[in-house]
Design a protein around this nucleic acid. Structure first.
Lengths: 231, 231
DNA sequence: GTCTATAAAGTGATAGAC
DNA sequence: GTCTATCACTTTATAGAC
């Protein structure tokens, strides 16, 4: 685990917590420095003294949310690759390693679940824009690791096609995180299991099917040369 | 086609055009009344005189973008249901009816393609939030029509499950519209066809596979996706 | 209808007292 | 380190002249 130099307490920590809560509740653009210092019970100058600017504070907030998810994802993927020792990891398990860390971190977070998911979704939606360069690079590495895992599991899917399918998949996750409440409203009380785990499970299966589109199911041994056109 | 009372020319039209362009280029939150009146070459009071408020102008801009797409979607769905006369419409064709109108309207729009797609994506992302109530109701109706069409094609998929799968599907489309450039960057020059038509085609197939997850393929008559690729 | 001038409130950032 | 006071701007909206 890379250690981030983030304070355990003190005013910096109070500002980060306050900003995170407000960003989650209202969206990044709708929170002023004064809103943050009011909640953190510091003076208005504290943000600029401790972080240099509102922008810099925003970066730290995003980093603090994203980095643990990133690290848990890589740890899970490492684990899977060890478990399957060189062989391709099944698609569903790879996708699981993308989604589960979000649910896990939501519980560890001081925020309630729904705002936390919205915050994470918004951060992923703007695709790391505004994150410190160093962390952006980590996310690029993460994306590459997962892409290679998928490529191994789906050798007949061309590289460009795979990139797009991962893009669509990610979009589904972001929409789920930021607008969890919409399908819930439609399913008035009927819903079998409304927990995030269940919903994420639906997303995993949906995405796995999408990624596998056009790929012949492996019945017993390798089938004939497919030569799928990947438009 | 429902006729909207939108001016063909004059200052109202100039303001709508300017606002649309700026919203598309910079995002809804990053455009001030002054930015708009500067581009429209009117005085600052014009927005409030003609529309009452910045918010109201925003609603009109969104409506003007969304309504033609909405109407073309319904027209296409009507056409498909006529064509298949009561029988279930194939999933790919329904999804096509969701996506194609966006590409069509992009060409009719005065904006260049990329900003137009971003604008549409952002409007869909906030799920009609901020739209006039009347138009929001139209979108709810549209969603219901498409959901019923999918339900007919996929009778073994439960209603809640279908709602979630459509949600994931929509998320993929939104992400595609708002971040079209990301996978393009990965595929440096290799890409076979980078047109929006081709990308939307990829999304249609991805989504169809996701919607069909767990559904037994119909083996009775000619199977396979042969005649479905009309992109 | 069009325009200027201005109100009233908010913004991020900072100088300088303590 | 903490805080107040304030700067220099920007925001939406509107009153009132033309």
């Amino acid at each position: 685990m890379r250690e981030m130099t983030l304070p355990e307490s003190g005013p910096k920590r109070k500002l980060l917590d306050a900003a995170e809560r407000l960003f989650a509740e209202r969206g990044m653009d709708a929170v002023s420095i004064r809103d943050i210092t009011d909640v953190a019970k510091t003076n208005v100058a504290a943000v600029n003294y401790h972080f240099g600017s509102r922008e810099a504070l925003m970066s730290w907030v995003m980093a603090r949310v994203v980095v643990p998810i990133h690290e848990e994802r890589l740890a899970r993927l490492d684990g899977l690759e060890r478990k399957w020792s060189g062989k391709a990891v099944p698609v569903e398990e790879i996708i699981d390693a993308i989604a589960k860390p979000i649910v896990g971190q939501a519980r560890k977070s001081g925020l309630s679940e729904s705002p936390f998911y919205k915050l994470v979704g918004r951060i992923f939606a703007q695709q790391a824009d505004g994150l410190p360069k160093e962390i952006e690079a980590q996310l690029v590495y993460e994306n590459d690791r997962f892409k290679r895992a998928f490529a191994k599991a789906l050798p007949s899917v061309g590289e460009d096609e795979l990139g797009w399918r991962m893009h669509f998949m990610r979009g589904g996750l972001i929409h789920l995180l930021t607008h969890q409440e919409l399908p819930h409203r439609q399913a008035r009380g009927r819903s079998a299991d409304a927990s995030m785990d269940a919903i994420v499970g639906r997303w995993v299966r949906f995405s796995a099917a999408g990624l596998r589109e056009g790929v012949e199911p492996v019945t017993s041994s390798k089938k004939g040369p497919q030569e799928l056109f990947d438009f």
